[in-house]
């Protein structure tokens, strides 16, 4: 079953597109940021899936175990998660400032207020 074998990658692609859709289509800045987080989370899934070896265990050296999962993608994605959190935090910080200055977090209202 080709389709089922690639199940993880389908999940990655679908989650990615859900996030991307929210980033593009939503006009509310908080919803955009939520979309961005989902978008990034999909990439985390991609990395974590690829490190898994079937039947493999956590890469801790012990007797009787010869098959380990690849720890490197997990380490990489730990870094990427930190980056993702900082981006979201900074984005939310900017949204707070926008709300203070414009009194709104809807994109069209902000644009309208700038035109006045």
């Amino acid at each position: 079953m080709e389709l089922l074998g690639l199940f993880y990658y389908w999940v990655f692609a679908i989650v990615l597109m859900i996030g991307f859709y929210a980033v593009i289509a939503k006009r509310n800045l908080i919803k955009k940021l939520i979309g961005l987080s989902i978008f990034q989370a999909a990439v985390f899934l991609l990395y974590i899936t690829m490190g898994k070896v079937e039947g493999g265990t956590a890469p801790i050296f012990q007797d009787g175990v010869t098959l380990y999962s690849n720890p490197l993608p997990q380490v990489l994605i730990l870094t990427a998660i930190v980056v993702g959190i900082s981006t979201t935090a900074l984005g939310l910080g900017i949204v707070v400032r926008i709300k203070e200055e414009y009194g709104s977090i809807e994109e069209d209202e902000i644009q309208q207020r700038d035109r006045q």
Binding site: L36, T87, R97
Partner: peptide, 12 residues
Amino acid sequence: RRALPAVFKYLI
């Protein structure tokens, strides 16, 4: 203040 929406767009 227009720096803020500009930065938000850049961030996204």
